[in-house]
C-alpha cells in the first residue's frame, strides 16, 4: 500500500510540478497567444501588399538578373551567355554610355534647378501675401497635367518656326533657338520644362517652412541679422530634412525620365536625349532584346543605388534634425 501511496505522492508532486510548469506555460502561451494573435492578424492585413512585394518586386528583380545573363530574344529560345551582355554594354555599346551621360546630365541639371525653383516659390508663398490660396493653386496646377499632354504642349511651344518661345525671343530681340531640335539645347530645354511641374515639391517645402519656429527668426532680428542671415542660418538648416526628402524623390524621378523622350524627341537629335529608360524600352520592346535590356536596367538600378547611398552617407553632414523630429 505504501508504494502506491508514495507513487501517488510522487505522481502528485510531479503533477504539481507539472501543473506549475503548465501554469507558467499557459501564462507564457497566453502572453504569446496575444502576441501570436497580433502576429497572425498583422500578417493577414499586410498579406496582399507583401504578396505583391514578392510577386511584383522580388521575383522580377531576381528574374531580371537571370534574364540579363541570357540572350533572350522573343524569336528564339533564350540561351545562357554569362556576363556577355554586361561586357557588351560596357565595351561595345557607345549608345549605353551616351544614354548614361544624357540621363546623368539631365538629372544633375534639373534636380538642383527645379528644387531651387520650388524652394523659391515656397518662400514666396510663406510671406503673408493676400490671395495665397490662389497663387498656391496656380503654381501647383501645371504638375497635375498628364505628362503626355504637357509633352505635346511643350513640343508645340518649342516649335522653332511657329512656337511660343521663339516668338518670345523675337519680342525681346534675342536670336531664335532650335531648342529640342538641337543636340546642345535639348537637355537644357527639357530642364526648363521640368521647372513647370514643381508643384508637389513646392507644397512639401511650404509645409516645412511653416514648421520653422518664429522665435528663431526673431532671434536673428534681435542680433541685427538681415533677410540673408535668416535664410542662411535659420531657414536652410531647419529645412534640410525636407530638402533631403525632396532630393531623393526627385533624383529617382529624374533618372527615370521617359515620356518626354518618347513623345517629344524620340531620343534625338543625334541621341542627345536618349534617356536610359527610353533606351531600355527601345531595346526591350522594339528590338526584342530582353536580355540586353535587362542588363541596361541593372545599370540604372545600380546608378540609383549608388546615388542614394551617396546622398544618405553624406546626409549626416548637412542634414540637421531638430527637436524630436528624428
Amino acid at each position: 500500500m505504501k508504494a502506491p501511496d508514495s507513487m501517488t505522492h510522487i505522481s502528485s508532486s510531479t503533477a504539481l510540478a507539472e501543473r506549475s510548469l503548465d501554469r507558467s506555460a499557459t501564462a507564457k502561451s497566453r502572453l504569446s497567444k496575444r502576441q501570436r494573435r497580433e502576429l497572425y492578424w498583422g500578417l493577414g492585413f499586410v498579406s496582399l501588399a507583401v504578396g505583391g512585394f514578392v510577386l511584383l518586386k522580388i521575383v522580377p528583380i531576381v528574374a531580371s538578373f537571370v534574364i540579363s545573363l541570357t540572350d533572350w530574344n522573343v524569336a528564339r529560345a533564350p540561351s545562357f551567355i554569362g556576363f556577355d551582355n554586361y561586357a557588351r554594354m560596357l565595351t561595345a555599346d557607345p549608345l549605353f554610355w551616351k544614354s548614361l551621360w544624357v540621363t546623368a546630365y539631365y538629372s544633375l541639371f534639373s534636380v538642383p534647378v527645379s528644387m531651387a525653383f520650388a524652394f523659391a516659390l515656397a518662400m514666396l508663398l510663406n510671406n503673408k501675401i493676400p490671395a495665397l490660396g490662389l497663387f498656391r493653386t496656380l503654381f501647383y496646377l501645371p504638375s497635375i497635367i498628364p505628362i503626355i499632354a504637357s509633352s505635346i504642349l511643350w513640343l508645340w511651344m518649342f516649335n522653332p518656326d511657329f512656337g511660343l518661345f521663339n516668338a518670345g525671343l523675337d519680342l525681346i530681340g534675342l536670336p531664335r533657338q532650335r531648342f529640342i531640335y538641337e543636340e546642345s539645347q535639348v537637355i537644357p530645354s527639357l530642364v526648363f520644362m521640368s521647372m513647370w511641374s514643381v508643384g508637389p515639391m513646392m507644397i512639401i517645402f511650404l509645409a516645412g517652412l511653416q514648421d520653422v519656429p518664429n522665435q528663431l527668426y526673431e532671434a536673428v532680428e534681435i542680433d541685427g541679422g538681415n533677410a540673408w542671415h535668416k535664410l542662411w542660418h535659420v531657414t536652410i538648416p531647419m529645412m534640410t530634412p525636407t530638402i533631403l526628402f525632396n532630393l531623393l524623390i526627385s533624383i529617382v524621378a529624374a533618372l527615370q525620365t521617359f515620356v518626354q523622350a518618347f513623345i517629344m524627341t524620340e531620343g534625338g537629335p543625334n541621341n542627345g536625349s536618349l534617356f536610359i529608360v527610353f533606351y531600355i524600352y527601345r531595346k526591350a520592346f522594339q528590338e526584342q532584346q530582353m536580355g540586353y535590356a535587362s542588363a541596361l536596367a541593372w545599370a540604372l538600378f545600380l546608378l540609383i543605388c549608388a546615388l542614394s547611398i551617396l546622398v544618405f552617407r553624406t546626409s549626416h553632414r548637412w542634414v540637421f534634425y531638430h527637436g524630436g523630429d528624428n
Partner: peptide, 17 residues
C-alpha cells in the same frame, strides 16, 4: 525601400510573366 527601385527593371520580367 522599393520606392527607390526603378520601375523599368521590374517591368521587363513582369511583362514576360
Amino acid at each position: 525601400s522599393t520606392l527607390m527601385l526603378p520601375y523599368i527593371i521590374t517591368l521587363l520580367p513582369t511583362f514576360l510573366m
